[in-house]
Deep mutational scan, measured.
Amino acid sequence: DYFTVDMEKGAKGFGFSIRGGREYKMDLYVLRLAEDGPAIRNGRMRVGDQIIEINGESTRDMTHARAIELIKSGGRRVRLLLKR
């Protein structure tokens, strides 16, 4: 199942961390959800969800650093296409 999650940044960021990336020879996944962060309050994202797109850009062969950069580059908002 594919689904989109739109979030607005909180005081401590978006409230999730990721693992994976090209340099680890793996796809990008949601690693952790911060307690009471925007990701957990949104209610749609879960640990283990695969991140397919960040702000419309495919994560295929994307490095971990580039993924972080893209998440931050959207300013106060981020849109993720996830797969569960």
Rank of each mutant, 00 (worst) to 15 (best):
D1H: 04
D1G: 05
D1E: 07
Y2N: 15
Y2P: 07
Y2M: 05
Y2W: 15
Y2D: 05
Y2L: 15
F3E: 04
F3D: 03
F3P: 02
F3V: 08
T4A: 04
T4V: 08
T4K: 12
T4P: 06
T4Y: 06
V5K: 01
V5D: 03
V5N: 02
V5I: 14
D6W: 03
D6P: 00
D6H: 05
D6V: 11
D6C: 15
M7C: 08
M7Y: 04
M7R: 02
M7K: 03
M7A: 05
M7Q: 04
E8P: 05
E8G: 05
E8Y: 03
E8I: 15
E8V: 07
E8R: 07
E8L: 05
K9H: 03
K9R: 06
K9S: 08
K9G: 10
G10H: 05
G10P: 07
G10W: 05
G10R: 05
A11C: 07
A11D: 06
A11H: 13
A11S: 14
A11T: 04
A11M: 05
A11G: 10
A11Y: 08
A11R: 15
A11K: 15
K12V: 08
K12Q: 12
K12G: 12
K12C: 09
G13S: 08
G13T: 05
G13N: 10
G13H: 04
F14P: 11
F14V: 09
F14N: 03
F14L: 12
F14T: 06
F14H: 05
G15F: 00
G15I: 00
F16M: 07
F16T: 00
F16N: 00
F16A: 01
F16Q: 00
S17F: 08
S17L: 08
S17G: 08
S17E: 13
S17Y: 15
I18C: 05
I18G: 01
I18A: 02
I18D: 00
I18H: 01
R19I: 02
R19Q: 04
R19Y: 09
R19S: 15
G20E: 04
G20Y: 07
G20L: 01
G20W: 01
G20N: 02
G20S: 03
G20A: 02
G21Y: 02
G21V: 02
G21L: 01
G21A: 02
G21H: 02
G21Q: 02
R22V: 15
R22C: 04
R22L: 06
R22G: 10
R22K: 15
R22M: 06
E23Y: 02
E23T: 04
E23L: 02
E23K: 04
Y24C: 11
K25V: 07
K25L: 09
K25E: 13
M26Q: 15
M26L: 14
D27Q: 13
D27K: 08
D27P: 12
L28C: 03
L28S: 01
L28D: 00
L28I: 12
Y29K: 14
Y29I: 15
V30T: 03
V30I: 11
V30C: 06
V30R: 00
V30A: 02
V30L: 06
V30G: 00
L31T: 13
L31S: 14
L31Y: 13
L31R: 13
R32S: 14
R32G: 14
R32C: 14
R32A: 15
R32F: 07
R32Q: 09
L33W: 02
L33P: 03
L33Q: 03
L33H: 03
A34C: 15
A34T: 09
A34W: 09
A34R: 13
A34E: 14
E35Y: 12
E35S: 09
E35H: 09
D36V: 06
D36M: 10
D36Y: 07
D36C: 07
D36E: 15
D36K: 12
D36L: 05
G37K: 06
G37M: 11
G37A: 07
G37V: 09
G37W: 05
G37H: 12
G37F: 06
G37Q: 09
G37Y: 05
G37I: 09
P38C: 08
P38K: 09
A39I: 06
A39D: 05
A39R: 04
A39H: 05
A39K: 04
I40L: 11
I40A: 14
I40M: 12
I40F: 08
I40K: 10
R41K: 11
R41I: 12
R41A: 12
R41D: 15
R41C: 08
R41T: 14
R41G: 12
R41L: 09
N42L: 11
N42E: 11
N42F: 08
G43K: 13
G43P: 11
G43E: 13
G43W: 03
G43H: 06
G43D: 13
R44T: 10
R44C: 12
M45H: 00
M45D: 01
R46Q: 12
R46C: 11
R46F: 12
R46T: 10
R46Y: 07
V47T: 09
V47N: 15
V47K: 14
V47L: 07
V47E: 13
G48C: 04
G48Y: 04
G48D: 14
G48K: 04
G48R: 04
D49N: 03
D49I: 00
D49F: 00
D49P: 01
Q50V: 09
Q50R: 13
I51W: 01
I51F: 09
I51V: 11
I52M: 15
I52A: 11
I52T: 13
E53R: 08
E53W: 05
E53T: 09
E53D: 07
E53Y: 06
E53V: 07
E53P: 00
E53K: 10
I54M: 03
I54L: 07
I54W: 01
N55G: 04
N55W: 04
N55C: 04
N55M: 04
G56L: 04
E57G: 06
E57H: 14
E57R: 12
E57I: 13
S58L: 10
S58K: 10
S58E: 12
S58P: 10
S58D: 08
T59S: 06
T59L: 02
T59M: 04
T59C: 09
T59Q: 01
R60M: 09
R60A: 11
R60V: 14
R60L: 09
R60Q: 11
R60I: 10
D61N: 08
D61C: 07
M62D: 00
M62Q: 05
M62K: 05
M62F: 09
M62Y: 05
M62G: 04
T63E: 10
T63D: 05
T63M: 07
T63P: 07
T63L: 09
T63F: 11
T63G: 06
T63N: 08
H64N: 14
H64R: 12
H64A: 11
H64V: 06
H64Q: 09
A65P: 06
A65V: 11
A65D: 13
A65F: 06
R66A: 09
A67F: 05
A67G: 06
A67C: 09
A67M: 03
A67E: 00
A67V: 04
A67I: 03
I68T: 13
I68A: 13
I68Y: 06
I68F: 04
I68G: 11
I68N: 11
E69H: 07
E69Y: 07
E69A: 10
E69P: 01
E69C: 08
E69F: 13
L70H: 13
L70G: 06
L70K: 10
L70P: 00
L70I: 14
I71W: 01
I71L: 13
I71V: 12
I71P: 00
I71D: 00
I71Y: 01
I71N: 00
I71G: 01
K72A: 14
K72Q: 12
K72E: 13
K72P: 03
K72V: 12
S73N: 13
S73G: 13
S73W: 10
G74Y: 05
G74L: 04
G74N: 08
G74W: 03
G74D: 09
G75D: 14
G75C: 09
G75F: 03
G75H: 11
G75W: 03
G75V: 07
G75Y: 06
R76G: 13
R76H: 13
R76C: 09
R76W: 07
R76D: 09
R77K: 12
R77I: 11
R77D: 06
R77M: 12
R77N: 15
R77G: 11
R77L: 08
R77Q: 10
V78P: 01
V78W: 00
V78A: 08
V78F: 02
V78Y: 01
V78Q: 03
V78C: 08
R79C: 11
R79Q: 08
R79N: 08
L80R: 00
L80Y: 01
L80P: 01
L81C: 12
L81E: 15
L81I: 05
L82R: 00
L82W: 00
L82D: 01
L82Q: 00
L82V: 08
K83H: 15
K83I: 06
K83Q: 15
K83V: 09
K83N: 12
R84S: 14
R84W: 03
R84G: 14
R84A: 11
R84E: 11
R84D: 05
